[in-house]
Design a protein around this nucleic acid. Sequence first.
DNA 1: CGTTAGATTTCGTGA
DNA 2: TCACGAAGTCTAACG
Lengths: 233, 233
Amino acid sequence: MRLVVADCSVDYAGRLTAHLPMATRLILIKADGSVSIHADDRAYKPLNWMSPPCTLTIDESPESDEAAPGVALEARWQVRGKDGELLQISIARVHHDSSHELGVDPGLRKDGVEAHLQELLAANPETLGRGWALVRREFPTAIGPVDLLCRDADGTHIAVEVKRRGEIDGVEQLTRYLELLNRDPLLGKVRGVFAAQAIKPQARVLATDRGIACVTVDYDALRGLDDPDSRLF
Amino acid sequence: MRLVVADCSVDYAGRLTAHLPMATRLILIKADGSVSIHADDRAYKPLNWMSPPCTLTIDESPESDEAAPGVALEARWQVRGKDGELLQISIARVHHDSSHELGVDPGLRKDGVEAHLQELLAANPETLGRGWALVRREFPTAIGPVDLLCRDADGTHIAVEVKRRGEIDGVEQLTRYLELLNRDPLLGKVRGVFAAQAIKPQARVLATDRGIACVTVDYDALRGLDDPDSRLF
DNA sequence: CGTTAGATTTCGTGA
DNA sequence: TCACGAAGTCTAACG
């Protein structure tokens, strides 16, 4: 990994066209070939970048920038990506330049994403409704799998769409599934349930309008049900 | 902006739970308070991060990590965010540490996004169909504005949804608008057109099934129509 | 290889 | 401030 702090201007032409006027910025070159240009804000997002695969070529005696003919340039970097994408960095002055050997990262472990929420609900269908039982996770349909298919105490099937955050797209998705499932004579009338940690008001309105019930799920409580050791009380 | 290259392990607890075992990484602290931890791959995305507003506290004589009692730690950084989010960085060895004054970035100019595509189509409705005229951009409905409302040579209204890339969500969106617009007796029967630089096959199928026409738009040609100087041929 | 759905999405804009 | 739509989204999984 190479870290360069420099006064530079930047031009990007590819999926869009963008220009950065001359200013002091961090240029980050990773071992994967990626190049990113950071200002001192915007959290982790760079101002401009090039994703791998790409190639960096350096011109140590470039012409001056057309936009600023008076400014002498130390170097011009050209990063070429796929599809003719080009990131051009015109460097007027380098403040810092260092390289570091990081090695391959051992990777990271995550917990608490939608897949895990789905697992927890599959293991505890009673959370969604009294007397409900799981029929199948990832129940297949022609347009994709339904997250959970359950059956209530009366034997009625319920299609459950699980989201971490319940927004309008999830309701649309469940609507398409229900349309298909309700054509299947083996299942009979299928109801819909939209389950999420939090449901946006507009999504709730749309769901209700379509006869889909909404359930907000307490992730921590569910995890407690699943693993009593993790309870804190 | 402060750049630290160090052997560290990381724990994050907040919107999810995540752990990074000990390894050499870049820690980037920006003036906005954000902290991000980068490996030498994954392009510009960090392994872990904390977005502002957040506060960094440093413990210079921490206890050893529970997970690795044998490893002595130089420091432990705790970054606290909103909602009790916590990013904890356990530092075993610092390889590099430097700070740099970057100042406020003058910002960047972008071109070629959806808003501009919408402007160009509004200025050139004939691109969508012979004899078409623009009625209004951002035509308001109860659930949000339709990108373009046009009228063809016969006086029939057409609702146009503009996307850079035409996917299934855009068709759903236009469908909802059409449902509403067709209840308005002042407009009469309203047709739908889905316009994008490229339209995914499935989106095209869904649109066609719902009687919505698809138009692929040549952005560069449109820009040429709008500004003859920018033509390259 | 195309398509889909998720993301600690992030980021802007308009109400 | 909240909510929704767009993003140079990116990325991993699945058919």
